[in-house]
Amino acid sequence: MAQGIFVITEQREGTFRKVSFEALSEGRRLADAKNVPLVAVLCGSGLEALAGDLEKYGPDLILVADDPALAEYTTDAFTNVIAEAVKAQDPELIIIGASITGKDLSARLAARLDAGLAMDCVGVRLDGGDFVFTRPMYGGKVVADVTIDGTPKIAALRPNVMTITEAPRSAAVEKLAVQVGDVKTTVVERKLEATDKVELTEADIIVSGGRGTAGDFSVLEDLANTLGGAVGASRTAVDEGWRPHSDQVGQTGKVVSPNLYVACGISGAIQHLAGMSTSKVIVAINKDPEAPIFSKADYGIVGDLFKVVPAVTEEVKKLK
């Protein structure tokens, strides 16, 4: 009978994605509740030192697939290796962080294993021993509770939602015999922007702008820099060419869940609200007291963002 929980971790050049620790913490909690082992899976090349980073979050076993052919993520190689490990160990549940790579991998892996996949979960709970997965649909306009028939079940967790909990224990480390198999894609290059830029889906704080900025994001950038956050944008701001596509928050852009979302000059179209409504605290700054964004915010200021936002930046500096 399928038993135990797998967490597929994600690292690039020796640095784990934060969502991997979120997934491990969630895995530990569920493994304790079911009294089953938690297995972390680590894939890449030159990983000797990395298994130790995972022990902090409490896996009982770390499976390491260490091979030069796994240095770069490719869908084929990672699916082949992980599918084999899953078949050998027969876990009941596989947890993956729903980063861009995690979405690509979990979808392919689910098809390979003929396994049900709950994508972009914001919650997992046990109901009489059965896993119930909570996931937004329709861009977060509704939230579904789903169960998965058969095993393995796969849950991809939305980044930035689950709490990271340290639960250190010494884990057994086992090397997997790696057979990367047929790999039909080649990674030609990776172009990464300056590494000090915070990725929107992982940012703790997002300062976002819309039509009200009239294209001038300088005061928003100052506040984001002061807070150590990232800058986001509404569809209008992107369609106007004021910000790149990668900054767009909404149902047709990125779905974000920061601790603090500051919406500046954003009216709050339904499709924008769908992309940020799971933020923990939402602040709206808008000239129009009737703007729909105020119906979704925790704190609101009716005012000129070009006056209010710089003043907020100054107050934050004072606090620090």
Partner: peptide
């Protein structure tokens, strides 16, 4: 015949009433 079965749809959690500054 869904493997992933929808047990319930719920509205997103309601937020507390806004505090206007």
């Amino acid at each position: 015949n869904r493997k992933v079965k929808i047990k319930a749809l719920n509205p997103p959690p309601a937020r507390k009433a806004i505090t206007m500054i």
